[in-house]
């Protein structure tokens, strides 16, 4: 039995230590955010954050995540209280089928936690690891820019406790 720290809370899983995190999240813990796209680390659909950095959960054995913080899409906000990056994706209507979007949001979140003022070039280079087949890219970029804006103004406006996560 391993313990994973997901979205700020410990979860015990029965899966073997070598099981890729994605399967533990989806199959054992019932979290839908991270998606199976390729299982080969080529598409980014399964992106989550590990200690604030985007990783591909389909090729990350749960063993290596022990003692570290995992953040999934669900950790950014729910349908009634979406987080700033999720709100930006809704505002830009940045989805067609949406299957890639969870991974896109997590990768963008990883960028903005490190750099809330990314240049257009930095955004595109950073998002390169994730694939979208519907061609929603231009809206995804708009959403990341919008989210960066929101994160920056939240830093200025918000009372410090509210957005302590950043």
């Amino acid at each position: 039995m391993l313990t994973l720290n997901i979205n700020g809370r410990p979860h015990s899983v029965e899966a073997e230590a070598a099981t890729p995190l994605l399967y533990a999240l989806r199959d054992e813990l019932g979290l839908n955010g991270a998606k199976f796209g390729c299982g080969l680390g080529q598409c980014g659909a399964c992106t989550v954050l590990l200690d604030d950095r985007p990783i591909l959960s389909c090729i990350t054995p749960i063993a290596v995540t022990q003692g570290r913080q995992i953040t999934t899409l669900e950790g950014l906000g729910g349908i009634d209280n979406p987080g700033p990056v999720q709100r930006a994706f809704i505002a830009e209507q940045a989805a067609q089928c949406g299957f890639c979007i969870a991974g896109m949001i997590m990768r963008a979140e990883g960028l903005l936690r490190r750099n809330a003022q990314p240049s257009e070039q930095e955004i595109r280079t950073h998002m390169r690891a994730n694939l979208c087949r519907c061609g929603t890219h231009m809206r995804i970029l708009a959403a990341v820019r919008r989210a960066a804006q929101a994160v920056r103004s939240a830093r200025v406006d918000a009372p410090p406790t509210q957005d302590a996560r950043r």
Binding site: D27, G30, L31, N32, G33, K35, F36, T72, L73, E74, L76, G77, G78, I79, P82, Q86, F89, I90, Q93, A95, G98, F99, I101, A102, I105
Partner: peptide, 27 residues
Amino acid sequence: MPRVDIPAKVTGAIAYVQDLRLPDMVH
């Protein structure tokens, strides 16, 4: 009009057949 399906998709609610989990389900 904002798409009705997007909020669920960006927050990890059940949105796809891939997310369907029925009692006793096997793989």
